Every structure is written in structure tokens, then in C-alpha cells.
Computed example of a mutant assay.
Amino acid sequence: MPTERIHFSDLPADVQDAVTARTGPILHAATVSSGFNSALAARLATEQGELYIKGLPVGHPRVWTQEREAAVSPYVEGISPRARWRVEAGGWDLVAFDALSGRQADYSPSSEDLPLVAATLERLSALRAPDGVELKRAEHRLRNYAPASALGHFAGDALLHTDPNPGNILVGRGQAWLVDWAWATRGAPWLDAGYWVVWLIAEGGHPPASAEQWATRIPAFRAVRPAAVDAFAAANENVWAEIAEHDPDPWTHRVHTAAKTWAAHRVRD
């Protein structure tokens, strides 16, 4: 379920002081409405420029995502906004990033954003998961959604984002930027292109064959065996069936339908 969002001005005074100790005076603070995982998400205008800050109470069950994002940031420079600092104060855990001037990606079939997203996913597929960052493994994350015999398809040493929904892709400065590394994972380098297929169907209205054509722009996806893609599509259907059962809203229903559509497309006679 989405985390309830608060405004920067609603933070305790000592938390705001911890921020201004790093930024100087805050000229303007604007709450960002998109995203599900953060209790605080805001753009801060300062005399040194703009920052994007996100945070959770230290007792929140997903506060570990704050550490994950800060830890991954040095390894994804150039495809993701840089994390400037992380601070814990007044019962809050905050991470500040360079703010981008951009917009959410458009996944529709005629969108000029699609080649930019494909280029970013291709760059990402070449990144090795850093040894110094604690990451879950893709085969472990999918262990309850695919047969044991299929899990080896998902294993690898690539750094994965695993959630390329259009809200996590910002288009600006002539490229697509990945944001929100809460679910960063170690696994096979083609998996993010596979996750993209589901979102192209769900949010862009692509038929499965069209979505796969875009995914094949990423060489790692183009090279993977069809049986691996079949297993991944089936696993995603199972993942989204569980999510839709627990959170039966229109958004999860739409993504679940997309995952089912892709899995059915992958079935061979």
C-alpha cells in the first residue's frame, strides 16, 4: 500500500534543521505526489541549487530502502541522479539527490521516449552488481513464483533496477533517467528489459509482440534463450496475481492483466 505523504514543513524542527545544516536556507519546498514508498518526497530550492529529498521514519518497515538507494547511487552515476547525502535525525531517515528537470516517461507506442528508455536500460544491463552493497538475488525474489528448475534463468551478477514503470523513468537533458532504486537486485542482465515489457503493455498499451520488439533493443534480452523469457513471463504473472489479490485496485488490476497477457503470449504449442 502507498505510504502516507507529508510536507517538508510538517517535519519536526530538528529534522528540518538537520537538512538546512547541509543545504543552507530553504527557499522553497514542493511536495512531490508521485511514488508509493516514501513518506516524504519533496523538491527543495536552495541557494546552491535544487535537491530532491525523500525520507521515512526510522521505525518504518521499509526504511531499509533508504540505505539501499544511498548505497547504490555511486554505481549508477550517469543513468540516475546522484545521491548527495543521507542523514538520520529526529526519528527520520532522509536521502537527498540531485534534482532533475524532467517529466515522467511516455510509454505509448509512438512515443519518442522509448528509444531513450531502451538506451538507458542497455547501459544498465552492462553494470555489474557492486560487491559492497547488500542486494537480494533475482532468483531468490522469484523463488515463490517460478519452479525451482527455472530459477537459474534469473541468476547473474548484473545490477538490476527491477521496477522500470514510467513513474521511475524521468526524461530530461536528452535522456531517460532511472530513479528509485529501492528494489535494486543482483541477477541476469536481461531482466530489466523483461520487466519493461510488462510496463509497456500495462502503461503504453503495446501488444506483447511490440513490447518485446522494444525489449530486444537491449542486447542482453535479444541474446537470452526463449525458455528463460517464458519462465520470467510466467513468474511475473504469479507476482502480480498475488499483488492484485492483496491490493485489488484498478492500477494493480491493469498491471496484472498486462502480466497475464504477456505470459499467454509466451505459451508455445
Rank of each mutant, 00 (worst) to 15 (best):
F97T: 05
F97H: 09
Q104P: 00
Y107V: 07
S108G: 15
E112P: 08
E112V: 12
L114D: 07
L114Q: 12
L114M: 10
A118S: 10
T120D: 09
S125R: 04
L127R: 13
A129Q: 07
A129P: 10
D131N: 08
V133M: 05
E134Q: 10
E134V: 13
E134R: 12
E139K: 12
H140Y: 05
R141C: 14
N144Y: 04
Y145S: 14
S149N: 00
L151M: 08
H153P: 00
F154Y: 06
F154I: 06
A155I: 00
A155Y: 01
T162Y: 02
P164I: 07
N165C: 05
N165L: 02
G167M: 02
G167Q: 02
N168F: 07
N168K: 08
L170M: 14
R173K: 11
R173Q: 14
G174H: 04
W177D: 09
D180M: 09
D180P: 03
W183D: 14
W183H: 12
A184N: 04
A184E: 02
L191Q: 05
D192T: 07
A193R: 02
G194Q: 02
G194V: 06
W196N: 01
V197I: 15
I201K: 14
I201H: 13
E203V: 03
E203A: 15
P207H: 07
Q213G: 14
W214I: 15
W214H: 13
A215W: 02
T216Y: 00
